[in-house]
């Protein structure tokens, strides 16, 4: 499903955190939100899933205006903080979230087996979450997000604290999920992960500074590294603000 963000602004009190963002995530693509800490990636994701309403502008997923409750059946969300029930076992966490999506019992059982395998937690399913390491919690959180096979998947920094081998495995899974027709929006500030994506949205201080296919973006740089785009962008912005009074 397509995600259309149109003229969206979000302010918390006086501070404008998202500044007039316009872009469309193509159906069945992996789109990455790239930006430094505090640039507004999490806020943009929360706007897109409808956790918060925009101050101005609109967001559509498919043809549906967000926030919308029935569409939540089609959405998977992995928050930046793990948001797990620490007093429950990994399996109980999955069972609970699965039942909220009203999955049939047999289907749910089978899906739990599948997702536990994907995130490599089958051996730890009976452990309570509060004894999990940071990376294990991240993996369980990811398992919950994909449990009900959503058509749109929002992942807020899914691979932080995960070792390179498992990270590669997880990205491999993302590609498989994408091939099944799911649209994926993933936020990151790890530049390496950008090349795994189809398109990237570069966000800087709440503004969308670039949105293009990853290939095109890399072609614009001299060294072929994504960092350059940021350095360029921040220079542009600084010049913009410092030179304005003079001209």
């Amino acid at each position: 499903m397509k995600i259309r963000v149109a003229g969206t602004t979000k302010s918390f009190g006086q501070t404008e955190v998202i500044r007039h963002i316009d872009f469309t995530v193509m159906s069945g693509e992996i789109c990455c939100l790239l930006g430094p800490s505090g640039s507004g990636k999490t806020t943009l994701i929360r706007l897109m899933i409808g956790a918060i309403a925009p101050s101005t502008g609109t967001i559509h997923i498919g043809d549906t205006l967000m926030p919308n409750m029935t569409l939540l059946n089609e959405i998977g969300f992995m928050p930046q903080n793990n948001a797990l029930y620490e007093d429950l076992t990994a399996e109980d966490n999955l069972l609970f979230f699965g039942s909220v999506y009203k999955l049939e019992k047999s289907v749910l059982k089978q899906r739990i087996e599948e997702v536990l395998k994907i995130v490599d937690l089958t051996a730890h399913r009976q452990k309570r979450v509060h004894v999990f390491s940071g990376g294990m919690k991240k993996r369980l959180s990811l398992a919950i997000a994909i449990l009900h096979q959503p058509k749109v998947l929002f992942l807020d920094e899914p691979t932080v604290g995960i070792d390179p081998v498992l990270r590669r495995e997880i990205w491999h899974q993302f590609h498989r999920i994408k091939q099944a027709g799911t649209t994926i929006v993933v936020s990151t500030h790890v530049m390496d992960e950008v090349i795994e994506c189809d398109r990237a949205a570069l966000i800087y201080e709440g503004t969308l500074i670039e949105y293009d296919t990853v290939d095109n973006l890399l072609a614009k740089t001299q060294t072929g590294r994504v960092e350059e785009l940021f350095i360029l962008a921040s220079d542009q912005l600084k010049e913009g603000t410092t030179h304005e009074p003079l001209s």
Partner: peptide, 11 residues
């Protein structure tokens, strides 16, 4: 811990 927000992002 964000579980309430996560829960409310389900139907």
């Amino acid at each position: 811990e964000g579980t309430l927000e996560r829960l409310l992002m389900t139907p």
